[in-house]
């Protein structure tokens, strides 16, 4: 089959949406970027800011892999447009460790083998950080329930719960 590039049809070209410049503080660093309104915070992080630690698992708020902290609260970054977050402070998995030292949750996830393939892990970690900050979970049942917005298809749930308990205990002591 001969390859023929399809000609652009006659008629008007429909312009791409106008970009809007926004400012975010991402992992402590000020970032400015121009994005069209239809760009989600997730795609802004991954495809525009090069922060690919945050994962896309469904793009519909069904799996939690894209969980980040916005102004300290855990949210699904696939379910918000970047322009809506203008001025926000965003923490991604890349921002959890401080000065080369792993966040207690990151260390606990390694210690308890709380992941296998790793594609839900960033979301689990940010979600767990949000969970601890919320202070609404103390029992195992409460941790399980309040971490149920983060699917793990490798089935690491018991290890995830154990890791979160370890991090909570470290924080208390």
């Amino acid at each position: 089959m001969a390859r023929t590039r399809r000609k652009r049809p006659n008629g008007q070209t429909i312009p791409a949406p106008e970009k809007i410049t926004i400012s975010l503080t991402v992992n402590g660093a000020p970032r400015e970027l121009a994005v069209a309104p239809w760009v989600t915070l997730l795609d802004a992080l991954r495809e525009r800011l090069g922060l690919t630690g945050t994962k896309k698992g469904c793009d519909h708020g069904q799996c939690g892999a894209c969980t980040v902290l916005v102004d300290g609260r855990r949210i699904n970054s696939c379910m918000t447009f970047a322009v809506m977050q203008d001025g926000a402070k965003v923490t991604t998995v890349e921002g959890l460790a401080r000065d080369g030292t792993l966040h207690p949750l990151q260390q606990a996830f390694i210690d308890h083998d709380a992941f296998q393939c790793g594609s839900c892990t960033s979301g689990q970690l940010c979600s767990a950080a949000g969970l601890i900050a919320e202070g609404r979970a103390s029992t195992v049942e409460e941790i399980r329930e309040l971490m149920s917005g983060n699917l793990c298809r490798c089935g690491a749930y018991p290890n995830i719960v154990a890791a979160i308990q370890q991090a909570m205990e470290r924080q208390r002591s």
Binding site: G61, G64, I75, N76, T80, G130, S148, G149
Partner: peptide, 9 residues
């Protein structure tokens, strides 16, 4: 309803 993340939003 939903998840902790969605309830936050």
């Amino acid at each position: 309803g939903a998840s902790a993340q969605l309830r936050n939003m």
